[in-house]
Design a protein around this nucleic acid. Structure first.
Length: 463
RNA sequence: GUGGGUGUGGCCUAGCGGUUAAGGCACCAGAUUGUGGAUCUGGGUAUCGCGGGUUCGAAUCCCGUCAUCCACCCCA
């Protein structure tokens, strides 16, 4: 009986068509993080379960979705797969404050695991790219986190994303104004549906006393009115101020949001790339200041590809010392799924390197040596392993994204004269010495590292 | 975790109770041991998701299960 080769629900294999662009995006994220002075850290994929589910860290939802890890003979409930990077960060900071020093900026990229029902862009194992600034309460840190999201996505060529900002202080003040301070979570949950479900659903949920927030209709309408006019640029903050201006928490929140906008202006971030959304509710359970979420314009239904915010007391579970922080996470797999859906993933196809083909009868060390020589000059090079018909070897090279084909046969071996074929346009330069091959390959690949120009030209000449 | 839809080769689909499961794309081989995406020729690569049941007979009907999609829940 053969064993089923499929992976379990919500997990997947990535073939090169997804894994290659994924690597490329990941490289660009890393470069961005390093450019802002974030340092890499690693924590285990498996943590003690009490670390992950301790009070505060472990909402009901976390408990429902967490994966237990049990080795044979081990104790059930002792270990679990990490659910996000934030709780491990809290533990990490508590354990190592004295060696890392504060403020501490770190990034962490890796799989997290959630026992959710999978859907489009939702998996049970997925990669989160987290970056956090720990140990600073400065608004500069908040602004920098927003800027990093923006820069990382731009650098990775994600089209037309909008980062939405809100502040916990504003919603607190609003609830206070309408006299429903204790209904916070239910109100937030209802508001969150505004984009998806529409006004009527939200209104009924706000007023429903059993399943919803149980507000009076007049309260509910006020909440709706506040949120509905609250999406856009700085004008949103002015309108919020008119309603909530006399509350201290609102004043502080508005001032912080305005400062963030100012700092982003200084960094050349356009007005529409970062906007305010007074209805942004997600994550408010554990965030204490600014909160943020990112969607790609026109693909809002796909969900957020990045979210984050400020938390006052990150390490509170593990240490008496109060350590504030602000950070965000980019959901790499959802981003890839979204780009794939948008048809934006093909761009990543690179034409680089040399495929070394061989004829039967040449000693096997000949192509092996030539490929090594090219690699020694920093060029990706691969020998085709078998002396099959040379056309097949060239087809292999072309379909694998090689820029050049170099054929090694008896003539080359005897006379030291080579033909270099450009696989993107089928042009062949004949009669080259080995030194000339090196020179051309290195020059062309450095002039056009992704092979975009060559590939485009090849496409044009064919059509 | 709740409700519903769908599972046929690598991908998309036809077949919807009756001989050896059909087609397109892709793939492989040959025409073509010195040159690839074109052309021609040949090839089916399938436990019809899996298990059980009904039936003389099941890809087709029923049940279970797994996977997947949609809505809810929640989130990246």
């Amino acid at each position: 009986m053969l064993i089923d080769s499929r992976v379990a629900s919500g997990l997947r294999d990535l073939t090169p068509s997804l894994a290659k662009p994924r690597e490329r995006i990941l490289d660009r994220f890393r470069q961005t993080f390093r450019g802002f002075g974030f340092q890499p850290i690693e924590t285990p994929h498996i943590e003690r379960k009490d670390v992950l589910t301790g009070k505060g860290a472990g909402s009901e939802e976390v408990l429902r979705q967490i994966f237990d890890v049990v080795n044979t003979g081990g104790t059930l409930g002792e270990l679990a797969l990490r659910f996000d990077h934030t709780v491990p960060l809290a533990r990490f900071v508590s354990a190592h404050v004295n060696e890392i020093g504060l403020p501490f900026k770190r990034f962490a990229i890796g799989s997290v695991f959630r026992g959710e029902r999978p859907a489009k862009g939702r998996f049970r194992e997925f990669t989160q790219c987290d970056f956090d600034i720990v140990g600073s309460e400065s608004i500069v840190a908040d602004a920098e986190i927003v800027l990093v999201i923006h820069q990382a996505l731009s650098f990775a060529e994600v089209p037309r994303a909008t980062i939405w900002l809100n502040h916990r202080g504003l919603l607190e003040a609003l609830l206070d104004v309408i006299g429903a301070a204790d209904r916070g979570p239910a109100v937030l949950r209802a508001l969150d549906k505004l984009t998806k479900a529409g006004r009527d659903v939200v209104l009924s949920e706000l007023t429903n006393p059993e399943k919803g927030a149980g507000l009076a209709e007049i309260q509910a309408l006020k909440v709706l009115e506040f949120v509905e006019q609250g999406k856009g640029g700085l004008g949103v903050l002015d309108r919020a101020e008119a309603v909530l201006g006399d509350r201290e928490s609102a004043r502080a929140a508005l001032s912080q949001l305005r400062t963030v906008r100012l700092l982003l202006d200084e960094s050349g971030v356009s007005e529409d790339a970062v906007q305010f959304d007074l209805g942004l509710a997600r994550g408010l359970d554990y965030y204490t200041g600014i909160v943020m979420e990112t969607t790609v314009n026109g693909w809002e239904k796909f969900g957020s590809i990045s979210s984050g915010g400020r938390y006052d007391n990150l390490a509170g579970l593990f240490s008496a010392r109060r350590i504030p922080g602000v950070g965000a996470s980019i959901g790499l797999d959802r981003l890839i799924a979204l780009l794939d859906e948008m048809g934006q993933l093909q761009k990543a196809a690179a034409h680089t390197g040399v495929l070394v083909g061989q004829f039967p009868g040449v000693p096997l060390e000949f192509p092996f040596r030539i490929a090594s020589r090219l690699r020694g000059r920093g060029v990706q090079a691969e020998c085709y392993p078998d002396p099959i018909p040379i056309g097949k070897q060239m087809a292999y090279g072309a379909s694998r994204g090689y820029r050049f084909g170099l054929i090694l046969g008896p003539d080359e071996l005897d006379q030291g004269v080579f033909h270099l074929r450009d696989l993107t346009n089928r042009q062949e330069t004949k009669g080259l010495s080995l030194a000339e091959v090196d020179e051309i390959v290195v020059r062309v690949l450095s002039e056009d590292p992704q092979g975009d120009a060559a590939a485009k030209a090849a496409l044009k000449s064919r059509s």
